[in-house]
Computed example of a mutant assay.
Amino acid sequence: MRKFLPWIIVGAIVLIGYFWVKGINNTAVTLNSNIEESWGNVQTSYQRRNDLIGNLVNTVKGYAEHEKSTLTAVIEARAKATQVTIDPSNITAEQLAAFNAAQSSVSSSLSRLLVSVEQYPNLKADQSFLKLQDELASTENQILTARTRFNEAVKPYNNHIGTFPNSLLAGMLGFQKKAYFEAVAGADKPVEVKF
């Protein structure tokens, strides 16, 4: 029995090491999948907003023919925002900043469009416009929720791969920290409303 003892100890160490590495890897893969799902939900929310913007612009177009510059700005911002793509398996802070900037441009253009709508009382009373406006407000809330849930999915992943001893293997297994959604520059300042 004594001659097999070293082999049993080595076998036990190998098994313990195997299950430890397997646990780190499988948990990181599961958490990464949660991040990818959350990112898909963020993109779905933004896509819904982009689809609604097209309908909103077409509705306003009929009433506000001379607001072409505002309408053009909204359309261009929407087009630029749809061109920014991010690989959910390798989300970096720079990619999120570019995505945020493009989406911020859409929000800014959309705000200008909604302010210009104030000049058209018939449009403000139009049921299809009111419904689109409500849908847009609902979509903005969905975007906020999706972004919050994305950040909530990133946190356990980053904690898992960043804590010791997992951090020793995470890098070797190819797992990198993910970036969080952050507010766009200037979001901490109060919005100035002019009438």
Rank of each mutant, 00 (worst) to 15 (best):
residue 1 M to A: 13
residue 8 I to S: 05
residue 8 I to Q: 02
residue 9 I to W: 07
residue 10 V to D: 08
residue 15 L to Y: 02
residue 17 G to I: 09
residue 18 Y to F: 12
residue 23 G to I: 04
residue 23 G to S: 15
residue 24 I to C: 01
residue 25 N to R: 08
residue 26 N to M: 01
residue 27 T to V: 10
residue 28 A to T: 05
residue 30 T to F: 03
residue 30 T to N: 09
residue 34 N to Q: 13
residue 36 E to Q: 11
residue 36 E to Y: 00
residue 39 W to M: 10
residue 39 W to Q: 14
residue 39 W to T: 07
residue 39 W to N: 05
residue 49 R to L: 13
residue 49 R to I: 01
residue 52 L to F: 10
residue 53 I to M: 11
residue 54 G to H: 13
residue 54 G to D: 14
residue 55 N to P: 00
residue 57 V to E: 06
residue 59 T to N: 08
residue 65 E to C: 00
residue 67 E to N: 01
residue 68 K to F: 07
residue 71 L to N: 08
residue 76 E to D: 15
residue 76 E to W: 12
residue 77 A to C: 04
residue 77 A to V: 12
residue 81 A to V: 06
residue 85 T to C: 06
residue 86 I to L: 07
residue 88 P to F: 11
residue 90 N to T: 12
residue 94 E to W: 01
residue 95 Q to C: 03
residue 97 A to G: 10
residue 99 F to E: 08
residue 101 A to L: 05
residue 102 A to N: 12
residue 107 S to K: 06
residue 110 L to M: 15
residue 113 L to Y: 11
residue 114 L to T: 13
residue 115 V to A: 11
residue 117 V to P: 08
residue 121 P to T: 13
residue 122 N to V: 11
residue 124 K to I: 11
residue 124 K to F: 08
residue 125 A to Y: 08
residue 126 D to C: 06
residue 129 F to E: 03
residue 130 L to A: 15
residue 135 E to Q: 14
residue 141 N to P: 02
residue 141 N to F: 05
residue 142 Q to D: 14
residue 144 L to H: 14
residue 149 R to V: 09
residue 154 V to S: 02
residue 157 Y to R: 04
residue 159 N to D: 15
residue 161 I to W: 00
residue 162 G to Y: 00
residue 169 L to H: 00
residue 175 F to Y: 06
residue 175 F to Q: 01
residue 180 Y to M: 07
residue 180 Y to F: 14
residue 186 G to R: 10
residue 187 A to F: 05
residue 193 V to Y: 04
residue 195 F to S: 07
residue 195 F to G: 10
